[in-house]
């Protein structure tokens, strides 16, 4: 158990009478990339949001690096510094330039020197090909560029792991790739990640493990090959069929 970075045990999340997560347990090892898939409304996003305590949970326990993650607790800010999160909606701060967006948390929350953090931010921006946009404002960027900046903003905090909540779902198809490439590079560098996505090809390429969630329960938790080629459950098969429909139609024509 020593190399487990994050564990969630028996999570229960309810919105009023609606149980969104029902006894979900998940553990993530250092350097592992976990992709969470499932039909919309199955609780994927809620799971991520519970993991860094953006949502209160009604049962279970979350531990990051040996510390309990508790909604509303005093050391929550310190714990959240270790978890970078990128959302589906463009969540950059519209009144700040790209560079100031990135620097806000390192300077204000981590009390780092502005020069040092700015130098790192520029290096990270360079890596995602956006160094020339440092002075731009979010409204001047495309959706894909905004998401890359959001990733850099999270990385600049030196998180030990990253959560990605459908970061490409709101993007035009041609912009999806540029964001996914950044994430693939992160995986190569050994970043621990939990990714919620609908991009199945990408999931196959990046995942060490695939978690299939339906109706708030983990139905399958296995390696990507097994999941995509030989899903164990009927429900996972049905889910994957949704994505292969178009391909089989093409096959018929040939």
């Amino acid at each position: 158990m020593a190399d487990e970075l994050l564990t969630a045990e028996h999570l229960v999340k309810r919105f009023d009478d609606n149980t969104v997560l029902d006894d979900v347990s998940l553990s993530v090892k250092k350097g592992e990339v976990i992709v969470v898939v499932g039909p919309s409304g199955c609780g994927k996003s809620t799971l991520l949001r519970c993991l860094n305590a953006l949502e209160p949970i009604q049962g279970g326990k979350i531990t990051l690096d040996g510390e309990a993650v508790v909604y509303g607790s005093k050391n929550l800010a310190a714990i959240r510094q270790k978890i970078g999160m990128v959302f589906q909606s463009y969540d950059l701060f519209p009144h700040l330039s790209v560079l100031d967006n990135i620097l806000l948390a390192p300077v204000k929350a981590q009390k780092r020197k502005k020069d040092e953090a700015a130098a790192e931010a520029m290096k990270l921006l360079e890596r995602v090909g956006l160094a020339d946009k440092a002075k731009s404002f979010p409204r001047q960027l495309s959706g894909g560029q905004k998401q890359r900046v959001a990733i850099v903003r999270a990385l600049c905090m030196h998180p030990v792991m990253m959560l990605f909540d459908e970061v490409t779902a709101a993007l035009d198809p041609e912009m999806v790739r540029e964001v996914l490439d950044v994430m693939l590079n992160l995986a190569k560098q050994g970043m621990t990640m939990i990714i919620v996505t609908h991009e199945m090809q990408f999931a196959k390429a990046i995942a060490d493990r695939v978690v299939f969630l339906e109706n708030g329960e983990i139905i399958e938790d296995t390696d990507p090959n097994t999941f995509f080629e030989h899903p164990q459950t009927e429900r996972a098969k049905q889910f994957l069929n949704i994505f292969s429909f178009e391909r089989s139609k093409k096959d018929e024509k040939n």
Binding site: L54, A77, D91, F93, L104, A109, A154, M157
Partner: peptide, 9 residues
């Protein structure tokens, strides 16, 4: 939320 996720109080 994104401010909270960035660990701002």
């Amino acid at each position: 939320e994104s401010a909270a996720a960035l660990s701002l109080t």
